[in-house]
Amino acid sequence: MSDTRFTKDHEWISVAGDIGTIGISDHAQHALGDIVFVELPEIGRHLAQGAEAAVVESVKAASEVYSPASGEVIAINQAIADQPGLVNEGAEGAAWFFKIRLSDPAELAGLMDRATYDGYLKTLE
């Protein structure tokens, strides 16, 4: 269950086999406020770890979403492109952004687990 890992930029990645599902954290959606637009990567695109993969926009501003790991995009969540407000409701669940086939699972070791991420959020307060 706790195979979800987090980045300092507030993305999460949940891994099952060699597939990683990626989204933004609940902290991120809350900080952004009401989300009005989501742009997702094209299926088949190869993303390097840390590459700009998606865009999420609130009334006030646009933010990039970076890929927490390297891999090829194999699925996108069209529901959040159609209804961006879903991200505010289920950022760490139903409102995932995209899935990749991991090309280097070893990269995940450099990401934070839930407890470490929660501790990191406290340092930002």
Partner: peptide, 12 residues
Amino acid sequence: PVQYSAGIMTEH
């Protein structure tokens, strides 16, 4: 204050 707890969308 850029917003209150209601958020920009609700305030607007």
